[in-house]
Amino acid sequence: MSARRPSAFFLGGRHLSEAASLALLVPFALLLVVVFLLPLGTLLHESLLVPAPTLEHYERVFAQPVYLRVMWRTLRIAFYVTLVALLLGYPLAYVMSRSGGLKLGLMAAAVLLPLWTSVLVRTYAWMVLLQRNGLVNEGLTGLGFVDAPIRLLYTEGAVVLAMSHVLLPFMVLPVFSALKGIPDDYPRAAQMLGASGWSTFREVIWPLSLPGVVSGCLMVFLLALGFFITPALIGGPQQMMIATLVSQQVREMLNWPFAGALVGVLLAFVLALTIAFNRFIRLERFVGTRS
């Protein structure tokens, strides 16, 4: 048979050889290069090197108060959305983690259903609810909170509300995973040692659930930063976020270099966060009914 030692590159044994592994990765690499790296690279190239090497577009992003305001608003909205998602999501995740059987199944379905429902559908639903003669206004006037319908759409509050709703599952699932992973004995032991319910939570459960909280916050914050559909439809010009600005620069101004610079700033931010928190990004939690 084969008396001569072949190159290690082709040796498999229990595993696949390096050659086979490489071959399996070729389609992935091709796709990511052509449809991911190349486009992003071309766009950044536009922003930095066309027609000559320049930082002028990046300077413009930071020098013009209009754009600074957009970025500041983007960060602020993303922060509020993350906060609201955490405040709403943590208690739900906690109750889910202490439930089982049918109750857990129904709750999990209630979280997964919106997660996998089109963002457009959910945004549309909010537009219907929040319009001038929508259900929310009807409710408010009916209950006598306000005399006449008020403007709800095209406010920052509406944007935060709708985005929190859309991104909430991304908070609930990782927090639920983390809480589920805490063995029952820990809180029980803490109580045996005399801790009250609240201090058990503060001293035992909350610290142990932190990885899930970080993961959820990171995911929600990252997604919120670049969110396009919801703010574009629910917000007005006064609520413009960076994604809408990018879209406007491309579609209305045809100003590719500037759009590239905006994307560059956004990417730098996102990449820094991703690399810093890489180990908290666990996609398998969002797939199917995995818990």
Binding site: M1, S2, R5, R14
Partner: peptide, 21 residues
Amino acid sequence: GFEYPTSGRVEIGGEDVTWAP
């Protein structure tokens, strides 16, 4: 054939199979 040696030989039926799959 699930692990390849750093050095040395494996023979089966007098045949060198050290690197055979």
